[in-house]
């Protein structure tokens, strides 16, 4: 039975380690690289090496950066008194895409998840409390996902932050997605939307 040469098998195995990539997709990507021009293949290899050698977590917030401070922390127009706490950098990017928030961020590095063995000491909780105290933050927005783990993390942080005087702690609203039909929403989402209802102004 014919098999791929060793170098191709190695590339397929490397692609298989990526999240959501199964054996068929890995094979397709490897064949694509084989067919690509030398310039495109080198560009891909260089991009992977560059991201591994130059990117590090921002010293202040944990966002990805190639300098000491990320572009958000280094931006003097951002309000340092308003801090949005997110689980992952991808959540920070999602909020930035919305273009509504002009404060700064703190990346926890995950959510509290006992089922996965993740407790408070595995997240940047201590650094968050230190930041809130040292940088005179006046509002913390807890922007974890509205899941069991996200809610529990938010409530855990809210309790810790409750000890900081003159600090407002808020949570992202949760409920119906924009453009959705009420009729199609599940009862948990409708219950969350009802309990989080607000006065029309």
């Amino acid at each position: 039975m014919a098999t791929y040469p060793r170098a191709v098998t190695r590339l397929i195995e490397a692609f298989r380690k990526l999240p959501g990539v199964g054996p068929k997709s890995a094979q397709r990507y490897a064949v694509h690289v084989l067919r690509a021009s030398m310039d495109d293949a080198r560009e891909l290899a260089d991009a992977i090496l560059e991201v591994k050698t130059s990117i590090k977590p921002c010293k202040r917030c944990g966002n990805y950066t190639d300098t000491d401070l990320c572009s958000v922390c280094a931006d003097p127009r951002r309000d340092p008194r308003s801090l949005c706490v997110v689980s992952y950098v991808r959540d920070l990017m999602a909020i930035e895409r919305a273009g509504e928030f002009r404060g700064q961020y703190h990346v926890l590095g995950g959510v509290l998840s006992p089922a996965d063995g993740i407790g408070p000491e595995d997240l940047t909780v201590g650094a968050l409390i230190e930041r809130v105290r040292d940088e005179h933050v006046t509002e913390v927005i807890l922007a974890t996902s509205p899941s069991v783990e996200g809610d529990a993390t938010a409530l855990y942080l809210a309790r810790l932050l409750g000890a900081v005087p003159e600090l407002e702690v808020t949570r992202l609203a949760s409920g119906l997605p924009a453009g959705a039909d009420l009729d199609y929403a599940d009862q948990t989402t409708i219950a969350a939307a009802l309990s989080g209802r607000r006065r029309l102004e």
Partner: peptide, 25 residues
């Protein structure tokens, strides 16, 4: 399907979540 009981009270406390996770595990 349909949610029968979401047991939302569990998620209000991380110790409850941890205990429920232990029982589920």
């Amino acid at each position: 399907g349909e949610v029968v009981e979401p047991f939302r009270g569990i998620r209000s406390d991380i110790e409850r979540v941890a205990r429920a996770s232990l029982m589920a595990e």
